[in-house]
Structure formats: structure tokens, C-alpha cells
Design a protein around this nucleic acid. Sequence first.
DNA 1: CTGTTAGCGCTTTCAC
DNA 2: GTGAAAGCGCTAACAG
Lengths: 368, 368
Amino acid sequence: MSTEPRASRPATIADVAARAGVSLATVSRVLNDNPRVDRALAAKVRQAADDLRYSASPLARSLVLGKTNTVAVVVPDLENPTFLGVLRGLSRAAGRDGYHILVADSAESVTEEIALAGTTRRRCDGLVLCAPRMPEDDLRRLLGELQPVVLVNREPGSTDPTGTPVVAADYRAALAELLELLHADGHRELVYLAGASRSASNTRRLAAVRDFGADHPDARVVTLPCGVNFADGYAAAATVADRIAGHVGAGDPEGGQPTAVLAFNDLVAMGLLSGLGERGIRVPADVSVTGFDDIPFARYLSPPLTTAAVPVDELGVQAWHRMADRLGGRTTPGHAVFRPSVERRASTGPAPVATSAGRTSRRRRVAR
Amino acid sequence: MSTEPRASRPATIADVAARAGVSLATVSRVLNDNPRVDRALAAKVRQAADDLRYSASPLARSLVLGKTNTVAVVVPDLENPTFLGVLRGLSRAAGRDGYHILVADSAESVTEEIALAGTTRRRCDGLVLCAPRMPEDDLRRLLGELQPVVLVNREPGSTDPTGTPVVAADYRAALAELLELLHADGHRELVYLAGASRSASNTRRLAAVRDFGADHPDARVVTLPCGVNFADGYAAAATVADRIAGHVGAGDPEGGQPTAVLAFNDLVAMGLLSGLGERGIRVPADVSVTGFDDIPFARYLSPPLTTAAVPVDELGVQAWHRMADRLGGRTTPGHAVFRPSVERRASTGPAPVATSAGRTSRRRRVAR
DNA sequence: CTGTTAGCGCTTTCAC
DNA sequence: GTGAAAGCGCTAACAG
């Protein structure tokens, strides 16, 4: 018969109403700061709520309000510094606006990614999708079903009718700048250590490589499949060292002796630096190396790494702003593209003369 | 009048019921695989659900079922490799069991942390708390209010009546092992580069330092405040170099010339290595260095870093298992403590003879 | 200003 | 086997 809540059950609005001797509606009003409620009554309600350590069930509120104050974030791998940075920036920015983050790690599986996008989206108000490798068809379908969506580092595809906002770093422009920097330093035989071949950011870097080749007939960039981690870069050091020594890869008649290597990212560059060091190859005296991302200690490596600083946290913050706009019914201007700033440090320098001569004469020793 | 859903509104169970010509209850039964429903009817319902691309609102289900299939994870900083690993392991393990993760980054603020623990917990079924620096009083209160809770790398406090499960790495034992390893290599003057002074994992390391001092009267460990990041280690290199050179810190009459430095973690060790390298101090010839955590590329540094491998992902997985047990009403056996395995690599070696002699004679040059 | 009432979308007794 | 109806805890008309 009592209206007191049992100790174990969290207090409900009805408990508060009973204790304050008012109706549910009044309690709701007071707790939602509806101004047109009597001061005295309001005080009484608040007192009752305090006594009962009451706070409204977010679940019930969400159901009736039709909003959860939560957004889902799907990333391929939390270990990846890019997505981690995005998540961090996003989570803090959203937190400041009273929003929560439901995070899902697809473990690099596209199938999982698609499924997670759906299941997480349903319990949230929106979806921030980092899906660099999702096939375009699947992406299009998801964009149709899961709005509001904000895309990070991924284009919606040629014909996207949804006007989905995109927040991205301009990997292409940044790699182009790195290439130009090396070219200006006299490098003519370059190697690009590619990341996951189907990822969006790798594709954009490859476009920069293509452009560069077209713009500079005097130079050549050989693309080598590599990977995205330290270990991948470390492993690539063997191949790179061979090429520097003049032992060109058998299946690659185009390669000369490279004087510069552009790593997919800083992790790869670090691995490369490490493997090169073990082989007595000096950086930048024998070969210049660039990274990508500017992770916190890139500047502290030996030598400090020339790289392109991708503002990952900012990407996350902006992704949130786009999402907040959509949630607020505002329609946001299209894509936000951030141009990474190239940090020129000591891992790059003038092309070594010897190799430069070799290049000029197009001389090439063939592996045997 | 029509029972067809408008295109823009997600289909509800009522829409499905109407289309299949059955009651809501039947639809619910079918979709929840309740066996006692007519095969033919069930098929019809499934068909209707498919046609309407229906799937039940997780929100409404959560409200009525009293569970959200979501757990909250509060971390001080996503950038920290430890918490990141925990989150990753946890998120994947929980995902396999159909659970979602609500993640909150407290930006290292204890106040935020307390608030976030409460607000996130309310929209979830449980809370995984990584709060290495939360004052014990606050923690105790939260443990009382927010159950079920699982603690990561943090003790609940001396008198915890809640029986909260703890998943932790044994930082103390691991640092002790590192200290013994160095002692066995002849090191007698050591430096410990401390992390955040009030954090639980730093406290445990300090305990190991204390034990070591007591067990080895012939050795001495000087603790220097440092930090947890690459930059902190880099900055500490100056002080360490001074001490190695015999310029002991003025306020620290106890310090001799150190032959080994134990960094708080790998990031700090990397920074230290970098700073030491710039000063021409060789590792391990002049000084041995150890890290902590065994982050992915610790083995690739030059020299490869001797460190203690903390199984962070496993911590996350185990945290989830504990949580899953509690959610399933099972009561889990107490604390799960994981002993990091010490990885002996090339950054440590025998104590250099010169300094060893200096130590023996207690000779000390004083800074001026 | 305050209370009554009707849902939000779903599950689950309880009858039939 | 199936349906009607009562809620889960809350908010928002709608009356007074």
C-alpha cells in the first residue's frame, strides 16, 4: 500500500510525486525546469527528489522524446591512431553538449561493420561512420537507411542523394606536398609504401602519386605494397634496402635506386627507420623518409620525422559539429576537408649525389 | 485510417501486426522465437516484418525488459595505450555476446569522471570503471550506487562491502622483476622515472621500489617525478644525463651515478632513449633502460626495449567476463590479477664498470 | 498553475 | 494457439 519505494528499486517519478503530494506532471515539469510552476511546490518536489535520490530514467525519456542523446561511432579498429583520435575528439566534443558515444569496433571486418552500423544506429540518434573500406554499394544502402549519418575520411560515392556530410583530411594534397618537397630536394627516384590497398586514404595517396608522375616526367615513383603498422614498415626495410643497393625488384623494370621513401604513415615510417638503421643505411644521408599523421612522437624520432600532420582530434570535433547540426534540424554545408600541414624535419634532405648521378644516366644494375 | 506506415517513419510492431493480420502479441512472440505459435502464422508474420524492414526498437525493448544490453566504460584518457587496449578487448568481447559499449572519456578530470560514471551508468546495465586517480571516498560511494561495477587496475579500497570484481595487472610484481633483472646485471644505482604521482599503477610501482630498497641494502633507487608521455621521458633525459655525468641533483644527497633507468612506461622510455641519444649517451653501454607495457613497437626500437608486457586487451576481455557474470546473476570469484611478463631485450645489459667503481667508493662529484 | 490522460513501442500475464 | 490489456517510466497535450 505504501508509496515509498523499496530500497533496492531506483525511485520513479511516481515515488517523487507521492512523496511531494503532487501529480506526475508537476514533478516532470519541475525537473525539466518548466518555469510556470509554483515556487513553493517546485521546492517541495525538488526536496522529495533529493530525498529519494531520484533522477529520471534516460530510457523512458528517450522513448517518449524520441531521442537518446547518444550517437554511434563505428570504427574499423580502435588501435588505429587516426580513428582513435577521431573518437577522442568526437567523444569530448559530444560530451560537452551532453551527448554520449556508443562505440563499435568492427575488427576490420566489413561484414561486421555493416551489421554494427545498423544495430548501433538503432539505439542512437545518429551515426558517425569511419568505413574506409566498405564497398560503395553497401555504403550507399546504409546511407539511405541510417540517416542522420556523418562520414569520416570517406566519400559517400559519386551519386549520393542523401547529402551526407563528410569530414575528411586531404590525404591527396598532403602527399602531393610531401612529394613536391622531396622533388625540390632533388629526389627523382621515389618509393611509396602503400597501406591497405582498398582503403580510401590509400586511394587518395595513390592519386597524388599519379599526379606527381604526370607533372614530373623527370621523376619516378614506385609503389610497393606494405601495410599500416610498425611491423609492416620494418619488413619493408629489406626490400627498400635492396633497391637502394641497386638490386631492383625482378618484376619491376621501372625502378631505379631510390633516394626517398614515402611511408603510408608514421608507424610504417618508424618501422622502416628501424629496419634501415639495422642495415647501416643512413637517413637522410642515404635515403630520405617521410611519414604521415604526425603522431605525438614523430618529432622525437632519430632523425625527427618529416610528416604530414593530420588533425585527427579536430576531425572528430568537426564530425560532431556536423552531427549536432543535423540533429538540431540544421542542414550543414557540404564537406569539411582539412589539409594536413607538412612538418618538415630531419628525416628528409637533399638527394645523395651518387644516386643522383646514377639516375641522370639512367644506369641501372639488375638484380641477379 | 490506413495501417500502412508512412515511408519516413520506421515500422512499428503494430504495422507488422496489421499487415500480417494478427495481434501485437503474436508478432512479438514470433520475433522472439517463442515456439508455441502456429508455423503458418509465424511465416506470415516474418514475411510482413521483412516487407516492412521491421526490427524492434531496442529502446522500447530495453524499457520493458529492464535491460539495455549495453555497458558503460569510463576511462581517463583514450590516448593512454593501457585504457585503449582495455577498451578494445572489452568492446570486442562484449560485441561477441551481443552487448554494446557506451564509452566516456573523462579527459583526466576526476570530477568529470565521477559525473560520467553516474550518467553513463544510468543508461546501461553495468559500468566498467578505469579510475586510477579517483579518491577512495568517491570511489566507495560510486561502488555503492552504481552496481554492477567492474574495476580495472584499481582496488576498491580497504573496506569494500560490495564485492566488486577487479581486473588488474600486477604492476608491482612486474617492476620488481625488472629491478631484480637489473640488480642481477650488477646495477646498484638506479633511477625510477615516476608517472602520475597519485595513480594506482604508479603507487604499485613505488611499492616495488620500496621493497627492492629494503631487500637490497647494496643498491639504491632514486625516484624522479616524470610523467607518462614521450615528451616527459624526453625532458627527463636532461636530468638523467646530468646524473650519469656525476652532477647529482642538488636536493638529492642520496643519488650516485645511475647505471640504469626504469621508465614509468614505454612511451617515457622512448622519449628518454631519444633524449639520451642526442646527448651521446649509449644504451645499454652507458646506461640500461627499461620500459613498461610492451607497446607494439617496443621490440623494434634501437635498442629494442626491455619492458614488461601488460596484456591490456586481455584485461579488457576479462573485465567483460566479470561483467557478463554479474549481469547473468552469477557471482564471480574475486580479483583477476595478471602478471606482466618481462621481455628482456637489448636496452638493458651489465652495469658499466667505471660507474660501478664510483659507486663502490661512494665517491660523488657534486654539481656546482 | 496543476492534474488527468493518452501515448512512446514493446513484452507479458491473463483469459479465451 | 491467440488476442486483449496492463504496464515499463516518462512527457505533453488537454482540461480545469
